[in-house]
Design a binder for these strands. Structure first.
Lengths: 355, 355
DNA sequence: CTGAAAGCGCTTACAG
DNA sequence: CTGAAAGCGCTTACAG
């Protein structure tokens, strides 16, 4: 007869949706006290706290995160934007990101660009408008670069860039990465030191800055050794195994083949190795292969892959540390680039050039 | 002198944080009208709409998603729980999930269990409490199974399970998957048909239901052919390349080796193949290998891997479809299991058993 | 130590 | 077609 309106509602409208009011009523305290028990237990009398605890257990209450985030103006969520889930390299970076995030009480919202099919809608509406306290960019942002990120309402959103190099758009954001030019140069230098003179470079789409940096390193190394680069030795394919197979096919389809191939990443090296073996050539006897990243498959390839190792997990940790610095301490952006060391890992896919 | 209070605020407290009020003021309308322009443009006069549009552009306003989600009681976010990002198989499943999600205006929140290190905190606090409108479970939920998912306040949260089999805890949730028992049986039958009699099975942690189902299929096949299974032929390792290498080593470390190995997934098959080749044996001449999943690396392994193909992308699509049915139409759970077809892909890692 | 009240930014009946 | 007002569930000064 005289049941309260909110009772009616909670029984008909929101079955199972317990709110702070229900707990308060049951514990016979105000909602403020319930809230305090959860957020500042020390400011509540022992006795009261126990009663509230009881009520929480009994009702199965858990706070509405949406309401909390809204009220507090922060979400405890960090968004990570990466080109593609399932990339073994980024998986390692994620490990580092995750470990720091969870130790500091943050959740991760992972978003794939799928090599830039991301729409303004997706990024603009969902991501940047306060659903996250900060963003880790592991992908280059060509699709929406300047527009969204610098639009007025997002000016204050902390961003740190990992791995990917900085486009002019994004200069001003802090970043953590290896020196891709130097690393690519080191890889090429190594091939040259082995006696190779005809060295090819296989890479993914040109849109990627990473690729361009690595190509620069390759070219610098060749130039420094006074070695010519034939146009057809620098070949672009889709950044995938199939892409690498196509690219390799183009490369082998001629009279005087290169004696070594530098692949812009390990995934492409996998396709490259496959295609070379399929064509009847031996690695490294006929042709040497070098990769980039040192993903988990590199050491079990046949032959095991010589490659540049990036400290992927460490990059993830550092990126996250720096992001949380901005998020929590409100540190302003300084655009500082943090370079972490890479390492040439020599395995059996490279051998002497037949000089 | 006489600037309004909220003007002061917006200049000092929230730099760059434009709210609906600012737009309303500038367009000289109520906030209700601004909201309407965004959500029901047809209910606003052309003229007014234009003025509001202007104001939005000028201020760079974008709605506070947090407030919207809170107010509307839904987030347009679907959470996907998977064991590990970077698993090439789940990457494919994600493709299907993503394509349906984005075509229907949903964003994805991806969460890794990292093979069950997920804490109650993480899942309970962040995930299930209304930060998502529904959940796709691609991992078995041992760590928090019944407790969280069936706790009162989450009773209504739509959940669909993909790939993973249903634990008793989770019976009652709809799911989409292949018939793992039948598929594993088919793989083993094939080896038997090739003349193999000593067939081993390498698998990941026992906690995984998938693994158990596949083992059941293997045992059923062997039993049906009246072949004995020696204890040491069924070997468990960590679900990783290194785990597979260890497991394979154990297997080979005896006099009469199996002539074929069935690996519970392709990733393990990769380690297995590597170890077998390292030990000097030839595949498939000395030993045949069969995998499970048909990940993108399977066809470029050396030798190319015979395996069971799961229609990964399709599974993702179906899971998402069914989840959105629950989310949007409020359809009740029916616990119906949808079985999709698998396929035996024959490549060169399997050959005749030396009878 | 506790409660009443304001307010976070939005959306949506309800009047006009 | 438009505005005033209520309210989503919470947190936090502010009084007592």
């Amino acid at each position: 007869m005289s049941q309260s309106i909110s009772n009616q509602e909670s029984e008909t409208e929101n079955p199972g949706q317990v709110s702070i009011k229900d707990v308060a009523r049951l514990a016979d305290v105000s909602i403020a006290t319930v809230s305090r028990c959860l957020n500042h237990p020390d400011r509540v009398r022992e006795n009261t706290r126990a009663r509230v605890q009881q009520a929480i257990l009994k009702t199965g209450y858990s706070p509405n995160t949406l309401a909390q985030s809204f009220r507090r103006g922060k979400t405890q969520v960090i968004m990570v934007v990466l080109p593609s889930i399932g990339d073994p390299f980024f998986t390692e970076v994620m490990k580092g990101i995750r470990s720091v995030a969870s130790s500091r009480g943050y959740s991760l919202l992972i978003s794939e660009t799928q090599f830039n099919t991301m729409t303004d809608d997706e990024i603009g509406a969902m991501v940047v408008s306060r659903q996250a306290d900060g963003i880790v960019l592991l992908a280059s942002m060509s699709p929406f670069g300047t527009e969204v990120l610098s639009s007025k309402s997002h000016q204050a959103l902390p961003i740190v860039i990992g791995c990917e190099n900085i486009t002019p758009d994004l200069a001003g954001f802090p970043s953590v990465r290896i020196d891709n030019v130097a690393a690519a140069r080191e890889a090429t230098d190594y091939l040259i030191a082995l006696g190779h003179r005809k060295i090819a470079f296989i890479h993914g789409q040109m849109s990627s800055l990473l690729t361009r940096e690595r190509e620069r390193g390759y070219r610098a190394s060749m130039r420094a050794a006074d070695l010519p680069i034939e146009d057809r030795w620098v070949v672009e394919g889709k950044l995938s195994i199939q892409g690498a197979i196509q690219a390799t096919r183009k490369l082998l389809n001629h009279d005087h083949n290169p004696t070594a191939i530098f692949c812009a990443n390990d995934e492409m090296a996998m396709g490259c190795i496959h295609e070379i073996k399929s064509s009847g050539l031996k690695i490294p006897k006929d042709i040497s292969i070098i990769g980039f990243d040192d993903i988990r498959y590199a050491e079990i390839l046949d032959p095991p892959l010589t490659t540049i190792r990036q400290p992927a997990e460490k990059i993830g940790e550092r990126v996250m540390h720096r992001l949380l610095l901005e998020v929590e301490a409100g540190r302003s952006r300084n655009g500082q680039v943090e370079i972490v060391p890479h390492e040439l890992i020599i395995r059996e896919s490279t051998g002497p050039g037949n000089v």
